[in-house]
Design a protein around this nucleic acid. Structure first.
Lengths: 343, 343
DNA sequence: CTGAAAGCGCTTACAG
DNA sequence: CTGAAAGCGCTTACAG
């Protein structure tokens, strides 16, 4: 009743274990009749290869781990992550490799995740949404496990990564607001223990300075990359600087929150306050008015992460690879784009 | 440089492989000196047990799979799932068992998930958010893999499950609206290929009938368990029946969407239209006004799922277990509760 | 308390 | 094209 072994299948098919193994693994050097009798036996007996035994000899797991290091539960609030995962899945599609999501939302889960990943369950790891100086990428790498990081890796870590041009995107967004004649431009930042948040903030400051203006610390507030955080940040900013006429939010979700706050405060968008987000996720099209946003394709990012990881696994080398993907400003109604624009 | 084997550790420590194994597995019958010399060798050599070899002999993986069968990407839009996962994690906390999330969002990923789960990677599986007549639970079970389903399992499937009292919760919600004097009560349903959605709808109809009224098909619209769906459904309902004075939405997310639609249509909540949701998730407290909702603890549900699964794994039996958790109506402002109520 | 030995279920040169 | 045999790295009675 339980799953039979190769041995049993071999006996039923009247061949050796080696031949059954060859059939299971698609070896071309098997006589057609042998193959058929093996296939029949496999079907009859409901044979499924034992992964542990196979892994023990091949040293392959045919699965990769993905950890999204979000301690906050933000993981399930932002469509961003779903897109990345979809992209990773697409990048893996051509190969018989499973994607395993390892949760890491609490210190306890974090330990468990590290144990799982170093425990030889996976052939490689994609790490995402890293905070602060997370030692995990280097820890895994030192154990010989191929690793790729989504976004900028922790400072000083020699790890492969796939990133988006956060700096250029932020500058484009702010330049656009400046060109629209906005003079009091605020920014809602992500958590500043995350490289993407830091880089977008630096782009903001750089663009302000490049326009000959002096950055004003009052025009900056952290929104933690959440909708609620964005709303709260916008409320704070409005209270501190009622004359704000533009906001660059470092994510669409925060921009959506900011729109709620502006609406509640009776400010018209874009007439009184122009708003630009970052991500250009589906959120950007569902806000009222439609949100201008810096486009980055998380699906492509995910696919590249998968590609780079598979490359590293196949090559069995220690080469550090990186890919930086372009970003592009998409102007919609929230910063003065055409009201009916489908874009 | 690569990870050493038991053999190497044994030689370094001057003992046999068996003794090293005993130390690694915490056997009490090891002389203190042997233990120490083994521990020293392990530390020096950076030994980590090979999982595949261990699994091959013990037949344990020390990890369980969780699949959330959401084809839509809804997975990352609803805090509901994060709560369940947190609960499962809590239920596993006492044991050295890893939680592995297996994605199943496209037909391709579904196949891959099934292959992974039947491939002997996990000791048991928790299945969640099943649609229609998904054969996966029975498929896994027939392969001898312990399975627990979150929610009502597919019709006719003899599988363990943990569910919430959807029927009672829906009735309580509708009775409350009736007691508030509402006469035109609509419902926004979830996708009717999901048992939870069906059961909440039936509870709604039953309560309407029990009040001596005749259900009106015009007062029912599907919102697909998403925010956008809830909003759209509310728009449709308002257009069809402008005299609606109450809505029972089968999830908080849909209720939040309905609130947006009501707001946009200029209806006051609760004065013109009373709204009750389902889940009592964090969303219920962040809407304006605060949302009355049927409370169910997804964290507890998750914990119970883990408990039942661990029981089944430990017992190695074929017993079908079920747990049904109570639900409770929480009245807040959206259906006439006190405006400042913290509850 | 400890070691020698068998065995878990596969894959893979090797020889034919 | 195929089989006998070695071996992957562990655990676990068994005997001492």
């Amino acid at each position: 009743m339980s799953i039979p072994t190769l041995e049993v299948v071999a006996r039923a098919a009247g061949v050796s274990r080696a031949t059954v193994s060859r059939v299971v693994n698609g070896s071309p050097t098997v006589r057609i009749e042998s193959r058929q009798s093996v296939e029949k036996a496999i079907a009859q007996l409901g044979y499924v290869p034992n992964r542990a035994a196979r892994t023990l000899v091949t040293r392959r797991n045919d699965s990769i781990g993905v950890v999204i290091a979000e301690p906050t539960g933000r993981l399930f609030g932002d469509p961003y992550f779903a897109e990345v995962l979809r992209g990773i899945g697409a990048g893996l599609a051509a190969r018989e490799v499973s994607l395993v999501l390892v949760l890491s939302q609490s210190p306890d889960e974090e330990r468990r995740a590290a144990r799982y990943l170093t425990g030889g369950h996976v052939d490689g790891v994609i790490l995402f949404s890293l905070h602060g100086n997370d030692p995990l990428p280097e820890h895994l790498q030192s154990r010989g496990i191929p690793v790729v990081v989504g976004g900028q890796p922790p400072h000083g870590a020699r790890v492969s990564y796939v990133d988006n041009d956060n700096h250029g995107g932020a500058i484009a967004a702010v330049n656009h607001l400046i060109e629209q004649g906005r003079t009091r431009i605020a920014t809602i930042t992500g958590p500043l223990d995350m490289p993407a948040a830091v880089t977008r903030r630096l782009g903001f400051l750089e663009a302000i300075r490049a326009a000959g203006r002096t950055p004003d610390a009052n025009l900056e507030e952290c929104g933690g990359f959440t909708r609620e955080g964005g709303q709260r940040a916008m409320e704070v900013l409005l209270q501190r600087c009622p004359d704000i006429d533009a906001v660059f939010a470092a994510s669409d979700l925060m921009a959506a929150g900011a729109l709620s706050a502006l609406h509640a405060a009776g400010r018209r968008v874009p007439e009184d306050v122009a708003v630009v987000g970052f991500d250009d996720s589906i959120i950007a099209l569902s806000t009222q008015p439609a949100l201008s946003s810096v486009h980055q394709s998380m699906e492509v990012t995910g696919r590249e992460l998968a590609n780079v990881l598979l490359q590293t696994i196949d090559a069995r080398d220690q080469v550090v690879r990186h890919v930086v993907l372009e970003t592009e400003l998409i102007v919609r109604q929230s910063s003065g784009g055409p009201p009916t624009g489908k874009n």
